[in-house]
Design a protein around this nucleic acid. Structure first.
Lengths: 210, 210
DNA sequence: GGGCAAATCCCCCGTACGGGGGATGGCCGC
DNA sequence: GCGGCCATCCCCCGTACGGGGGATTTGCCC
């Protein structure tokens, strides 16, 4: 079983930030800082020797980047948990870091208590993320599309009908589901085809799902 | 500008849970419950009328599923923020819900205070997730993802035909494009419907585009 | 050589679909 | 108040579609 204290290492090139993180960890009950490194290379060398459970990793390191460091670290020690800690909220960097194996991603400026919470959370299988980061991540599952939606002037009702069509409903079923007549459904479909410049339900669905 | 209170609606089929959520919202300063519905259909009908900022959505609803409800709701009201609230931590459901447009995902059993925090967080652009969920989401970036896709037994020719269907071609056009007869296209389509367990080209296309 | 799946083609038949007309209210904007 | 969209409903008509039969050829596997 694990010891009662959570072993943490820090990889951060700014000496002041490194020192203050180290101090934060050391001065908090239940945490202990087993290493603080200024470069990714140094971290890769030392970390296997003193096995922290959690690593706080700056993303902007000299020479080897934080992302690369995470990738190699997770290769060496798959069980290690990494929380990125950075000023950058650049979307690409977030996904690069997550793909590389980071499990958490905090923006610098969070309260110290949040950092400690994140360490505990990541240790117990969570994925602590600043809310902005979490939203970016969730969005990546949603529509890869709308930077500027072409504003397909569909009315609410038309969207609703199209939604049913996209679920494979035939017109009669849509009519029943919406408690309107078959003819009304057909009317809505005509407007939909007109507005989307298509000629069939299949085309409409494809356009609807982009 | 927005009012100081956060307007919340609840979609949850269990009357007791619905009542207790409603009570939680109403009795918390800064929150107000503008609707509580037992079915997705009811929610879709009523929510556009009283415009909550945040919707708490159970995933396991009778008839229309919570996921479908989210999909249609986000279609109608793209700005609305949805937090799933469920006992299921099934990976597929999580991603289905996120793809459908949910921005948060809490497991039932979280402390009431966490629910209120989540509502505020999602309102301000965050993505509140239980730690288990967050980890699943993050993992989906790490695993070289093509884990699913069990190769739906379609033959090469069938995929080709389905591809054209998904581009809105009618059968005659597909026949011309592939230089085969209309009847052959129809034959392939029959096998496709059979293999995908669908009854129309529209359903087939939807399944094909996941 | 028999079995088998893929790919090709054919016919019948009912019906869902889409295009072309309409019509009626309701609500909004100017 | 009039034109505009919206939502609702109705008719006719041709055709694309899907389900139900088939058939043939090619190639592969055992």
């Amino acid at each position: 079983m694990q010891s009662m204290v959570t072993r943490v290492s820090i990889v951060e090139d700014d000496q002041r930030i490194r020192a203050s993180l180290s101090l934060l960890i050391e001065s908090s009950p239940g945490f202990c800082c087993v290493g603080a490194y200024g470069t990714g290379e140094e971290a890769l060398e030392q970390i296997p020797g003193n096995l922290p459970e959690v690593v706080l990793m700056d993303i902007n390191l000299p020479s080897m980047s934080g992302v690369d460091c995470v990738r190699q670290l997770k290769n060496l020690l798959p069980a290690i948990q990494v929380v990125m800690l950075t000023v950058y909220n650049d979307t690409d960097l977030i996904f690069q870091a997550l793909r590389a194996g980071a499990s958490g991603y905090l923006l610098k400026g969070v309260k110290p208590s949040k950092i400690l919470e994140a360490i505990e959370e990541v240790k117990h299988g969570g994925a602590p993320m600043s809310s902005y980061i979490a939203r970016k991540v969730v969005q990546s599952f949603q529509k890869p599309q709308p930077l500027s939606q072409p504003a397909d002037n569909l009315s609410q009702r038309e969207r609703q009908v199209l939604d049913y069509v996209a679920q494979g409903y035939i017109n009669k079923e849509i009519a029943d589901a919406l408690a309107i007549s078959l003819e009304t459904v057909r009317s809505h479909l005509k407007s939909i085809y007109d507005k989307l410049h298509v000629r069939s339900r299949t085309e409409a669905v494809v356009k609807h799902l982009q």
